[in-house]
């Protein structure tokens, strides 16, 4: 496992996601009552590291096109995960903005992981 890949991608997803959430809460609508900023930060670290372990497992189990199968699975997983915020009932004003706010965050872990993968490829 290339520890640097996990660490850099998780921290960058955390920093970008936290900044995005902070500015969204400040400028558009504050959803911190239902999703505090610190939960976004730790959630992004957690999901990026889960992707990192998943990719390590794919590399170990599949010799051929491991990165392709990992990317495909993670893309589908990220896409399917947006069903939850779309269908979730949010009992606050401006609830119609909630899916629009949360959906980009669902793709951030994979985006950052793939970005740093090119810098620290797994052996």
């Amino acid at each position: 496992m290339n520890v640097k890949l996990g660490l850099y991608s998780a921290l960058s997803a955390c920093v970008l996601g936290t900044l995005y959430t902070y500015f969204y809460y400040q400028t558009l609508f504050d959803f911190s009552a239902i999703l505090p900023l610190w939960k976004v930060s730790f959630g992004l670290i957690s999901f990026t590291l889960i992707l990192f372990y998943m990719q390590s497992l794919f590399c170990k189990l599949l010799n051929h096109r491991a990165m392709f199968w990992f990317s495909l699975s993670a893309s589908i997983g990220s896409f399917v995960s947006i069903i939850y915020p779309i269908t979730e009932r949010v009992y606050i004003d401006a609830s119609e903005f909630y899916p629009g706010f949360i959906i980009p965050l669902h793709f951030l872990p994979l985006l950052m992981f793939i970005t740093f993968y090119h810098l620290f490829p797994q052996k």
Binding site: A10, W38, K39, F42, G43, S46, L49, F52, Y53
Partner: peptide, 12 residues
Amino acid sequence: LVALTVLSTSLA
């Protein structure tokens, strides 16, 4: 890294 995963997942 594993400790960071456990910590961040439990906090999230």
